[in-house]
Amino acid sequence: MEKTLDPAISVPAAAPRASREQFRASDDKVMLRLARDLTKDIADANPSIYWPDMLLSAGIGYAAMAGAILVSSVPMAIALGLISALALYRALMFIHELTHIHRNALPGFRLAWNVLVGIPMLVPSYMYEGVHTIHHKRTQYGTIEDPEYLPLALMKPWSLPLFVLVALLAPVAFLLRCAILLPLGAAIPPIRRLTWERFSALSINPDFRRRPPEGEMKGRVFWQEFGGFVWSWALIGSVFAFGWRPLLIALAIVSFTAVLNQLRTLVAHLWENEGEPMTVTAQFLDSVNVPPPGFAAELWAPVGLRYHALHHLMPSMPYHALPEAHRRLKGELGNASTYDGANHPGMLHLVGRIARSTMAVR
């Protein structure tokens, strides 16, 4: 259904392109109001989209991984490994949706995702749930309390390649965490506390310390950790049954997904905040949309993550509704609006912008 602008709201037709600094103290109330009013009819999660997308992505990913392990041709193994990595990356990114959708919106989806994707990839949903929502709190975004923020644009140039390359070690780190640290922590409380505070969250802020789980999260953590422990030792045991090749290929594929996700994280924000609280509009402009045209962003920022800035305006908006929400807001507010200030052409442009910023650091 086509939406029209409320005649009571006036939008400047040719305002200068907005900057984040303009909105440190106040918000663009017109944009915030439109984001709410123009998208009310598309705000519900659609099970007929979520379930097939997640299941098909996981199925293709595992089938291609099996093919990469079984084929003897190296070029074919590489091609199948790439397909597997991209498909499993898409399936894995549904962890982001699990943190935002209403608990009753998709019955059984969290359990199915953890059994099919989260635990096999050794990244169960509790590693994001209760953590990512802090990143969306107005008073904590971009501060030292934000687990998902580092002022990368204000750091030394060498920090960017290090930030990306460290992700290569993620699969081995997850395997050691589930196989070694979890059982040790069950017997030794200080190790349990350290593992929970420092290694139980998908965070990038080294100063972040996670608080103990509460309420129903305690039960989720227990069964997801138990599943990760069992699966990690099944993977280790597979070496004795099938040799090193299957496990090493699987780890290589997951390493590629981890690096791809780290690259996406690198360009999800402009990373220009120095730790002070920001308005919603300033947070929006520090975040990134990479809208169409172009298909590449759908590969490296799947499941709605190419609209990351828009997601910060409407965190509970389901991923499948974000393209339409973007179209409506862009159509109403135009090319010279605050909204357009968060729209960027692609990954290379963003990496270049952040890299240039780091080179100016003394």
Rank of each mutant, 00 (worst) to 15 (best):
G228Q: 12
L329H: 03
K3E: 04
I180V: 15
D27N: 15
H96Q: 12
F208K: 04
L329I: 04
L329N: 01
N104Y: 08
A58S: 04
P213H: 10
V351S: 09
L88P: 02
R20W: 08
E276S: 08
L176D: 13
S238G: 09
S287R: 07
E216G: 08
A252R: 06
P147E: 09
A252K: 07
P323S: 07
A58K: 00
P315Y: 07
L176N: 11
F222Y: 09
A14Y: 15
F94K: 00
W300C: 04
M31W: 09
L310E: 06
L122I: 12
L266K: 00
L251Q: 11
L285W: 03
A167M: 01
R264N: 09
W158I: 09
L329Q: 01
V123N: 01
W231P: 01
V123R: 01
F174I: 09
G61V: 00
T265E: 12
V11D: 01
A173K: 00
H132W: 10
Q140I: 03
S316R: 12
R209S: 13
L154P: 06
L260S: 15
P161D: 04
R245L: 04
R17A: 12
Y149H: 07
A179Y: 02
H344G: 02
N335L: 13
G219D: 15
L181W: 12
L150F: 06
E197Y: 13
E129S: 13
I249L: 10
W196G: 02
P323Q: 02
P120F: 12
E276A: 11
T338F: 01
G130W: 01
A18M: 02
L247T: 13
I42S: 05
Q140K: 12
D146I: 06
S238T: 11
I354D: 02
Y89T: 02
F174K: 08
K40W: 12
A297H: 03
A91E: 00
L154N: 14
